[in-house]
Design a protein around this nucleic acid. Sequence first.
RNA 1: CUCCCGUUCGUCUAGCCAGGUCCAGGACACUGGAUUUUCAUUCCAGUAACAGGGGUUCGAAUCCCCUACGGGAGACCA
Length: 442
Amino acid sequence: MATTSSPVRVRFAPSPTGFFHIGSARTALFNWLYAKHTGGTFVLRVEDTDKERNTEEALRVLFEGMRWLGLDWDEGPEAGGNYGPYFQSQRADVYDNYLEKLKATGRVYEQDGALYFKVSGEPQVIEDAVRGRVERLEEKDFVIYRSNGTPVFHFVNVVDDIAMKITHVIRGEDHLSNTSKHVELFKALGAEVPVFAHIPLILKSNGPGKMSKRDEGALIEDYQKRSFLPDALRNYLCLLGWSPKEDREILPVGEIIELFELSDINKNNARFDEQKLAHINAEYVRQLPIETLAWHARPVLTEAGLMAEDASEDFLHAVLSISQEKMRGLDSLPEFLGYFFTDDYAEDAKVREKIFKKGDPCARVQEALMALESLEDFSEASLEACLQGVAEASGEKIGSYLLPLRFAVSGVGVGPSFYSVLRVLGKDIVIRRLQRFIQAGG
RNA sequence: CUCCCGUUCGUCUAGCCAGGUCCAGGACACUGGAUUUUCAUUCCAGUAACAGGGGUUCGAAUCCCCUACGGGAGACCA
């Protein structure tokens, strides 16, 4: 494997489009991981040569997305560094200087007002850390400066990598075919060719082709809005094209950094699987310390209009601590726990149907209501004993009481351990809801 | 059409470089069962893959070739 003795410098060079695509995020992540792994430098360079795209909003989406994922950059916009500016739109003089260098080799010529680079005609060897040795012949001369005087991607990309002393170019496989152009340019400019690592693409979950902005789940900002945990998304993204091996999948980022090697990156494209992402996200949610969970859950609940802004932290903790082990994503919290915070919660029609199929739920709720009204101690053990007694008194299984009662009290058929639900809800609310259920005739 | 890359369960992958311990391991999803308290948790079990064909070899998921299929690139976009 080709290596350089100089310290590792990698870069993520996005074009601000107004979206932060999941594939771009994964490319940024792999660069970041490699920089961390090697103790190198992670550079963020904004490729905004395509005029209109460079809006404030587009940059905000990009920067916020990266920071949310924890992908901090050592050099770049808002971070500084010795190789700036880090916006290509501000580097015109750099490009002009390198153009002069290239002209001096006699391999630049003008046609129709555009500047062309004359290719060598020799097959170019790409030493790729992921794919091994790849050979490709660049057959046609190509444009490096448009007739309007602005340089094109292939030129600025290579010039910046040289000027910024980039040692490893980690990017999507869609650039592999372009690399023969880039190698020609590196050589013509007398620069050392960096190590390339072309990582597999992320394909859409159904249908052909790579994931595009329009596909479901393709944008990082969607996951931010849906309150996914960034650590979870990042962990999932690591698994797309790379593996920690030893049958492990969920692991702290520190360990991933330690294990991450370019040579372990897969060659074949990966298909995006939202279900697996959801599973990993849920695992992370369930492992959160209760304070952190509350910190994440509060805005989700208040924005859904279920919980008052100044709602008690203690009550929130109580609700979360009995629910956490059964939680899925944070975005499902309003549906899963809404009834703890409001009387005006949605009912699950299927569960309603189900409880009426098996006997008279009102009668059972009535029996339980009478027993609970006179129960002073609303602890789990006491509640269980009480309801057990109700069931035994009428010669029934406790199971036939639980679903009607849960529905009467929460409108749904699933949730935390039922006795815990009753305890946290408290006697007043429980009694009130059971009465309401009976009065409404179910 | 040309060039480049790839191909292990439905999906993500381990194994491949250093051929035998792989009638192929894990995870998600799915199915069934358990926790005699429902349930989105937990536990157990099950279904399910080396693209096809030719070599090389005592022996190939692992090495070589061909075909098929998939992906990417082929802009005065990035």
